[in-house]
Amino acid sequence: MKDCYFMAIHLTEKITIYFGDASQSLATNDIAQKNMTPVLQVIAQQVGAEQMIFVQQNHGVQGVVITGKDSRDQFLEQSGDFIITNKKKYGIGVLTADCLPIVIYDPVTHSAGIVHAGWKGCAANIFAIAIESMLKEFATRTHDLQIYFGPAAGDCCYQVSLDFIDNFKQYGDIQAAFIKKNSKIFFNSTIFTSIIARNLGIKAKNIYTTYNVCTICTTSLCSYRREKEKARRQITLISLH
């Protein structure tokens, strides 16, 4: 186990991305009761967001487009597993505890997306679906996109069964996402999504993995596999300036 402090803020002139850890996380009860906790208010101040938008995640492929016509905070009011927007000072976020948070930024159209990608979402190609939504709504071009991966279960710990691979057989050559060690198989959702990203035309230099540490073996992060029902959910969020 790695006992290290993780929370990080990626700040540029145009965007702020927040990668949270267990120290500023949400309890499952707060999520179930749709409580906008003080933690979220603190994070909103840190990223300069005037509105906070989260969706009720269900491991599907539906998403939400934020137009800016509603100035209220929206905490779990709509269902979906990705959010896209081109509105400034809107904090769009996902909640995870081993699933992969993916932040998407288009510096040309100044639009953003965020994706909650568990293995079911990965298998259903939610990342590509979110990109397609940005192409439709904002005329995004894939070669302009920047992709940031947050903390998620890593191939050092995320053991899967042989049958698990069948969920991804439609994608062809993705063997790099499945690591074999001592007759055991481990899944790396970041490698899988990176392969999809490159196939979509996203440049390798625009795929960032700095914040993609393993949630299972990093004790400062929330992990369902490690903590089971006691696991809280850490926050990943992007806000446009």
Rank of each mutant, 00 (worst) to 15 (best):
A177R: 04
F187P: 02
A49M: 11
I196M: 13
A97M: 06
N58K: 09
A152Y: 06
Q74G: 09
Q57R: 07
D106E: 03
T67R: 06
A112M: 13
I104L: 10
G48D: 08
T16K: 15
I235N: 09
V213W: 02
I126E: 02
C222Y: 11
A22V: 09
N86M: 05
R232S: 13
S239Q: 07
L240K: 12
S133R: 08
I104M: 00
T193M: 09
E13G: 11
V47L: 12
T96K: 11
T85A: 11
L26V: 02
A197W: 14
S194F: 02
V39L: 07
T142M: 09
F168M: 08
S183K: 15
K2P: 00
I202N: 11
F168C: 07
H241E: 13
I9Y: 12
L145F: 07
G63N: 10
D173C: 02
D155I: 03
E50F: 10
I191L: 08
Q33S: 14
S25Q: 00
E132S: 07
A32L: 12
A123Y: 00
A32Y: 09
A139S: 05
L76R: 05
A112N: 10
K205P: 00
G80V: 04
L200C: 04
N29A: 15
N86P: 04
Y5R: 12
Q24R: 15
K34S: 10
R141F: 09
Q146R: 08
D173I: 03
V108H: 03
Y148S: 05
N206P: 00
D21Q: 06
K181P: 03
S23V: 03
R141Y: 07
F6H: 09
I185D: 03
A153E: 01
D155F: 04
N29S: 15
L240G: 05
A130P: 07
L237N: 02
Y208I: 15
V160M: 13
L76E: 06
G80C: 05
K136L: 00
C222E: 15
V47K: 10
D163Q: 11
D166F: 03
N182K: 14
E77R: 10
S223G: 15
L162C: 05
Q146N: 10
S220T: 06
H59A: 10
G91V: 02
I174H: 09
Y211S: 07
A49C: 11
A27V: 11
S133V: 00
S111T: 08
G93W: 01
S79R: 04
P101T: 01
G150Y: 06
T236Q: 09
Q62W: 04
G154S: 11
Y158T: 06
N212C: 15
T142K: 12
A123N: 02
S71V: 15
K34E: 12
Q24M: 14
I92G: 04
E50M: 06
T215M: 07
D106N: 01
A112L: 13
I191W: 06
R232K: 15
N167I: 01
H241G: 14
Q41R: 13
S239E: 06
I207G: 05
N35T: 12
R233D: 01
F54H: 00
F168K: 02
K14L: 14
V65N: 08
I104P: 00
I179N: 13
C157R: 00
N125G: 01
S223W: 13
F127C: 05
D70Y: 12
D155Q: 03
Y90P: 00
I102P: 00
D81V: 05
I53N: 09
T218G: 03
S220W: 07
Q175V: 02
D166K: 12
K89N: 08
I53P: 09
S194K: 15
